[in-house]
Amino acid sequence: MPEKSMRDAINECLHQEMERDENVIVLGEDVAGGMGSPGGPEAIGGVFSLTAGLFTKYGEQRVIDTPISESAIVGAAAGAALAGLRPVAEIMFTDFMGLCLDPVYNQGAKFKYMFGGKAKTPMVIRTTMGAGMSAAAQHSQTNYAWLTSIPGVKCAVPSNAYDAKGLLTSAIRGEDPVMYFEHKMLYMAACEVPDESYTVPFGKGNLTREGSDVTIVAFARMVHLANEAADELVAEGISCEVIDPRTTSPLDEELILESVQQTGRLVVVDESNPRCSMASDIAGIVASQAFDYLDAPIKLVTPPHTPIPFAPNLEYAYLPSKDRIKQEVQQVMEAL
C-alpha cells in the first residue's frame, strides 16, 4: 500500500469528496491563492498546500478564496450549510478562532437544537494547530478543548495520515458541524494510506499499543511521543498501553475506562495548557468512573500555564517531551 504524508492524505480526501458530491465547497484565505493578482489564481493551494489542485479542477464557485474575514468565512459556511451545501472552510491557524468563534459556537453548533431538530449544519472547519516550529505565541496554540466543551460541535484530532483521511471523510459526509484540527508538525508524517475513500468513525479511539502497567492517553503529535517513550520503557520492564482518542468530541471514554480498569494507572499527555484542558477532562472522567480501579494518582503531562515562547530552547522546554513522559510514567509506577 502506498505511503502518504498527512498533507497529501487530506488533499486526496478533499479531491475525492468534491468529486463525489457537488455540494462540497471549500472556502478560506488563499485556498487557491493569487486571486486578482498578475500571477493568476491557484498561486499556492493553501499556505500549507492542503488545498492544492482544487481550484483548477473544481473552479471558483466551489473553491472560494476569501479576504481576511474569519467571522464572515465561518458564518458563510454555517449559512451555506443551512441552505444545503457541505462547506469545508479553512481557518489558517487555529489561533484565529477568537475572531470567528461566534458562528461556530452560537450559530452552527446550536441551529439543530434551537430550531427543534428542523435544521442541520453540515459544515467542517479545518484549521492548523500546534507548536514546535518557533511560530510563537499567536501561531502555535492548541485549543481543541474549548471547542470540545461546546454541545453541538464535534472535534477531530488525527495523529497520522490514515486517520486524517478517514476522519475528514466522515466529517464531510456527516450532518454535524465539525472542527477538524491538523497539527502543523505532522503534515509531513507519512504512513500507509489506501487510495480509495474510506471513513474512520468519530468516537472510536485507537489502541496504538497494548500494555498492562499504565494507560497513556495522548493527542495528535503527543501520540508519537507517547509511543516513543513506551518503547524505551519496555527496557525498564514497564508495559504501556497507549490510546489515541482521535476525536475529542465524541470521546471514546469507554475505551479509556476499559483500559484503566485493567492497568490501574493513567497518564494523559496533552499539548494544551493545563487548565480546563482535555487532560483535566479525562482525569475527571476516569477519577469519577473508574475510582475503584486506580492504583496510583492520575498524572497529566502538559505545558505550563504560559503562552508559547519564541526562542527554540524555551519552546522545547514548554512542550511535553518523550523524557518527561517517561518520568511521569516511572513516578506513577512507584506510587502505591
Binding site: 490514515y162 478517514g166 504512513c191 489506501p194 474512520v200 489502541l207 499499543r209
Partner: peptide, 22 residues
Amino acid sequence: GYGSAVPSSSNGAAPAQTGPQA
C-alpha cells in the same frame, strides 16, 4: 511507525483495516 495497532472497525468501509503500521 505507530498507528492503529488494532484497527477500529469502521463498519467494513475500510479495505485496509490494518491502518498505518510500518
